[in-house]
């Protein structure tokens, strides 16, 4: 029994009397606590899949079922970490998380519990030192940490990550990947991540969903990554199994489904 299932998903964008099919017959079942990456070339519609799961876009055909309920429109049970962090610049780090917590748990938590919950989530991403800083006063990596804390604080059933580390430098990216792995190990979140970084996909995922090129993109192949956790990037660098997975994704992207 899958926790999140995407069934027969089609998506076409209509402009005037021209319809262009972006996604065709996407089927995917995700178990609770699983980490799924979707990888594919730019423009293959991987972000469209995530936006449909988030409810920010409606599917043309098919649908998404989360925990037995059909997804209709956006909601906090599918919180999202955006590529460009989307923090509100007029609010401090603390207030950015507070907006979400106050909206969602106004009734179920008292003031003190809410404050503890906000601080707890910011501590999870090591941002306790900057609670009163404004987004423009902290680095890109820190902004993304706050974005992750805000998403986690919503207690989502599934956490959606839209190229969360794409705008970061390589060192910061590695650091944040490790932290996301640690958070997922501790909290057991179901996560779905869009990426175009092969190493990131192999390191973080339980399964890698590889998409064919558009138009009418669909799932080309799903790769099971059976590397034991916790995973250590340095140990894995020389690991033949790791390199085998890496090779499999690279060959899918660059041999069988290369961009012309």
């Amino acid at each position: 029994m899958s926790y999140l299932s995407i069934e027969h998903l089609d998506k076409s964008f209509v402009r005037g009397n021209l319809a262009s099919q972006v996604l065709k017959d996407i089927n995917l079942n995700i178990a609770k606590g699983e980490f799924i990456s979707i990888i594919g070339h730019s423009g293959c519609g991987k972000s469209t899949v995530l936006n449909i799961v988030a409810g920010l876009l409606d599917p043309s055909l098919g649908g998404v079922i989360l925990d037995g309920k059909e997804v209709r429109g956006p909601g906090p049970d599918r919180s999202m970490v955006f590529q460009n962090h989307s923090l509100l610049p007029w609010l401090t780090v603390y207030e950015n998380v507070e907006v979400a917590v106050n909206k969602l748990f106004k009734r179920s938590m008292n003031k003190r519990e809410r404050r503890d919950w906000i601080e707890h989530n910011l501590a999870l991403v090591n941002m306790s030192h900057a609670l009163n800083k404004y987004p423009q006063e902290i680095s890109g990596g820190m902004k993304q940490r706050v974005g992750i804390a805000r998403a986690l604080a919503m207690k989502p059933k599934v956490l959606l990550l839209d190229e969360p580390f794409g705008a970061l430098d390589a060192l910061t990216r590695a650091h944040l990947q490790d932290e996301v792995m640690k958070i997922q190990k501790d909290l057991g979140n179901t996560m779905m991540m869009i990426t175009h970084d092969v190493d990131e996909a192999v390191l973080l995922s339980d399964r890698i969903v590889m998409m064919t090129n558009g138009p009418s993109a669909t799932i080309g192949e799903i790769l099971d990554v059976k590397l034991p956790r916790p995973r250590d990037r340095i140990a894995l660098a020389d690991d033949p199994e790791y390199n085998h997975y890496r090779r499999a994704v690279l060959s899918f992207l660059h041999e069988r489904h290369r961009l012309h």
């Binding site: 988030a54 956006p74 906090p76 599918r78 955006f82 989307s86 907006v99």
Partner: peptide, 12 residues
């Protein structure tokens, strides 16, 4: 659009 998305996810 990012801010609108945040608002939508939070169902403000």
């Amino acid at each position: 659009q990012d801010y609108r998305n945040v608002a939508q996810v939070l169902q403000l």
